[in-house]
C-alpha cells in the first residue's frame, strides 16, 4: 500500500489552468515580438509576409489568455514518469546520428522492452533483431529508401 502510493505520486506534476494558459500566451508574445526580425518584409502594402503571422499570433495570444481565465480553477496533471520513453526517442535520434539507424534501433528496442518490464531474454533478443531486419527488407530492399548510417550500420 505504502509502496503503491509512493510510485503513483512520483513524477506527477499538477499545474493550474491559469499557468498553462499564461505559458501559451507567453510563447506567442515572444513570437509576435520576433516577427520584425524574423520575417522579411516583402512586396505589398498590406499583402506581405507579415500579415498572416501578426494575425495568427495576436489571435492565439488572446485565446490563450481566455483559456487561462476560463480554466483557472481546473488543474491539469502531467506525469513526468514518462521520461524513459522520451529518453528512448532521443537515444534513437542521437544514436542514429552516431552509430547508424539499425544498431541503435536494436539497442533502443531492448531498452524500451526492459522498461516495460519484459524480462524474458529471448523475446527481447528476437524482437530487437527482427524489427530492424524487417525494416531493412521493407524499406531498403522493397522501396529503395536508405536509412542513415553512422560509424556502424
Amino acid at each position: 500500500m505504502e509502496k503503491k502510493d509512493r510510485i503513483k505520486l512520483k513524477g506527477l506534476v499538477t499545474v493550474p489552468g491559469i499557468a498553462v494558459g499564461l505559458a501559451i500566451a507567453a510563447v506567442y508574445l515572444v513570437l509576435t515580438l520576433l516577427i520584425p526580425s524574423q520575417v522579411r518584409m516583402t512586396q505589398g502594402h498590406l499583402t506581405n509576409a507579415r500579415l498572416y503571422p501578426y494575425f495568427v499570433c495576436i489571435c492565439a495570444m488572446l485565446l490563450a489568455l481566455g483559456f487561462a481565465l476560463t480554466f483557472r480553477k481546473n488543474e491539469f496533471t502531467f506525469d513526468l514518469g514518462i521520461w524513459p520513453m522520451v529518453l528512448a526517442s532521443l537515444m534513437l535520434y542521437f544514436g542514429t546520428k552516431t552509430l547508424g539507424f539499425y544498431t541503435s534501433s536494436v539497442i533502443v528496442i531492448a531498452y524500451m522492452m526492459l522498461m516495460w518490464n519484459n524480462r524474458c531474454w529471448w523475446k527481447i533478443l528476437l524482437t530487437s533483431v527482427l524489427t530492424p531486419v524487417s525494416i531493412y527488407l521493407a524499406f531498403t530492399v522493397g522501396m529503395r529508401i536508405f536509412m542513415p548510417t553512422g560509424i556502424l550500420i
Binding site: S89, F101, N118, T127, T131, I135, F139, P148
Partner: peptide
Amino acid sequence: KGILFPVIMIICFAGSYSMNNTMYDVLVMI
C-alpha cells in the same frame, strides 16, 4: 504492449525519416 510499442517507435522513426530523408523530420516528430 511491452513488445508492440517499442516496435511502433522504430517504425514511426523510420517512416518519419524516409519522407524527405532527413533527421530534421525525426526531431520534429519527437
